[in-house]
Simulated scan of single mutants.
Amino acid sequence: MTAASPQTSPNVTDISNATNDICRREILLGVAYCPVFLFGLLVNAAALWASIAKRASWTDTHIYILNLIATDSALLVFLPFRIYDAFSPLTKSVLCTYLINIHYSNMYASIYTFTAISVHRYLAVRFPMRAKSWRRKKVAAFVVCLAIWVTVVSLCLIFQENSPDKLQCCFERCKDQRLTFKFAVMLVCGGFLAPLLIIVFCTSQIIFILLKDTAKSEERKNTISIVTANMVVFIICFTPIHTRFAFHLFSEKSGTWLSEELYLSLSEWIASTNCCFDSVSYYFLLKRFYT
């Protein structure tokens, strides 16, 4: 009589396959975050040099640039930990909560700064004489940037959505710990849809006004190209992750074609690339088409 060969339980096999898939996904994400970190570091260093070292005096333009650099620098603090975690998982702790908050603070500070810059451009193009003669532009820019950070940090403190007890691992929530409805609505509507509508309105109005102007055709074309590029960058970077948040509001189950975890990881990576694409805004501001 021959001994019966041991059989692997289907549940054990499924768990093993899922674990391998997660490991492969994390390693690929770690590799993908590396160029974002390196290029973001290079772009921010160049922008900081161009905005500070080569300027004798500050303008409202430089205040907005420095705020963009600050938002990108917040992400650059987060990325090395995210890359390290992909290859050697961190233990979930208060540090993880802190790093997640840094990541999302960067994202929403960038969104609101983009919005402020769009409004600033629109007012400068719509009312050029008033914009040039207004003496408190620097004060206004400083107040706007300060308000952005106070708002973002306050929301992180009020909504404790990423405490260690809600995390499955350092950068991933437990499946049964869904975002509260109020918080998800705030992220989608206040954090994305409202800024998107403002940016689309301001950009379309700038293009419309400049197209009616027959003077300085080359400068006009450059300005239209850059404001359009800024709007496209905003949509590309921030639409996927907020689509995920919106889906989170109305669905209790994962998608059949792509897991929630994979889509969220990819959308977070796409959002993080804004620290590289911010160079479009740096270029626009430093060229000073509207100051």
Rank of each mutant, 00 (worst) to 15 (best):
I63H: 03
V36L: 00
L266A: 08
C237L: 04
L68W: 04
K92R: 15
R25N: 15
R135V: 12
I27H: 01
E268Q: 10
F250V: 13
I27G: 04
K92P: 12
M1P: 03
A215W: 04
Q7D: 05
G40S: 09
S110E: 10
I83L: 11
R244V: 03
L79K: 02
T228F: 00
L197A: 13
V144R: 07
S251M: 14
A109G: 14
A56L: 00
T113L: 09
A50G: 02
E261T: 12
A32N: 03
W257R: 04
I209Y: 04
T97K: 00
F192P: 08
N222W: 04
S105L: 13
T151V: 05
L41W: 12
F127S: 01
N67M: 12
S225G: 06
R220S: 00
T239A: 09
L68A: 10
I209E: 09
I158M: 02
Y112T: 06
S110K: 07
R136S: 11
C237R: 07
F39A: 09
V152A: 03
S133M: 14
R82M: 05
E172W: 15
Y33P: 03
V119P: 15
D278H: 10
S88L: 10
V144A: 13
H62E: 00
A53Q: 00
S163W: 12
S118G: 15
A70D: 13
I63M: 05
T61N: 03
I100S: 09
P164E: 13
R55Q: 06
V153G: 00
L167F: 14
V280L: 08
S110L: 09
L157P: 00
K138I: 06
R82A: 08
A45M: 09
R55D: 00
F284G: 08
A246D: 01
K137M: 07
I63V: 15
S133Q: 13
I117T: 07
I69R: 00
P240H: 11
F250I: 14
T180D: 15
V185N: 08
A56G: 03
A194T: 08
G30L: 03
S57P: 04
Y283T: 06
I198A: 10
A184Q: 13
T228G: 04
A47P: 01
R130S: 09
F183R: 14
V185W: 14
P128T: 08
N106D: 01
V139S: 11
Y84Q: 05
